[in-house]
Simulated assay, not measured.
Amino acid sequence: MVASAVRQDSHHTRTVLAETRLTQIRAYVRRHLTEPGLRPARIAAAHHISERHLYKLCAQAGFSLTQWIIEQRLEGAREELARPSTSDHTIAAVARRWGFSDLYALQPPLQDDAYGMSPATARRGPREELT
Rank of each mutant, 00 (worst) to 15 (best):
S50T: 14
Y115N: 11
T121D: 13
R21N: 04
S101N: 14
S85Q: 11
H89N: 11
A46W: 02
G99T: 01
D112I: 04
S118I: 12
R7S: 10
P109E: 02
A41G: 05
V29H: 05
T34I: 06
A120F: 00
G116D: 05
A120D: 03
S10Q: 07
W98C: 07
L33R: 04
P126T: 02
L54T: 00
P109M: 02
Y28L: 14
Q67D: 13
R96M: 05
R31L: 10
S87F: 02
R14Y: 09
G76K: 11
T131K: 10
G37D: 12
I91L: 12
V2F: 10
V16C: 09
Q72I: 09
V16D: 13
A5Q: 06
T66I: 13
R97E: 01
A105D: 05
S87T: 08
S87V: 05
I43H: 03
D113P: 06
L17C: 07
L81F: 01
A77T: 03
T20F: 05
L17N: 09
A46H: 07
L81H: 00
R96I: 00
A61Y: 01
R14E: 11
A3W: 06
R14N: 10
R124D: 15
R39I: 15
Q8S: 13
S87I: 12
M117G: 11
L33I: 03
W98I: 04
A45E: 12
R83Y: 00
A41F: 02
T86L: 06
I91N: 02
R30M: 14
I70S: 15
L130F: 08
A122N: 03
Q111W: 05
A44L: 10
V2Q: 15
Y115K: 06
P119T: 00
G62K: 10
A61Q: 09
T90N: 01
I43V: 06
H12M: 13
L130K: 07
A5L: 15
T86G: 04
P36Y: 09
D88P: 04
H48W: 04
T15C: 11
R52E: 11
S10C: 08
A3T: 07
M117W: 06
D9P: 00
L130S: 11
L54D: 01
G37I: 06
G62S: 07
T86M: 01
P84C: 07
V29F: 05
R78Q: 10
Q60K: 14
C58W: 00
E75I: 06
S101Y: 03
H12K: 09
A5S: 12
W98V: 06
R26L: 12
A41Q: 10
H11A: 11
V94A: 02
R97M: 02
P109T: 00
S4T: 13
L130V: 11
A61W: 03
T15Y: 10
A77I: 14
L110R: 03
A93T: 01
A46C: 08
R7H: 09
S4M: 06
E51P: 08
P119K: 00
R52A: 12
Q67T: 14
R73T: 07
A92Q: 00
D112C: 12
H53W: 07
L33D: 01
A41K: 08
A3H: 08
A59P: 04
R124M: 09
R7D: 14
Y55G: 09
E35A: 11
I25H: 03
E129C: 05
L22M: 13
T15K: 15
P126I: 02
L74W: 01
G62I: 08
C58G: 04
E75K: 13
L106Q: 02
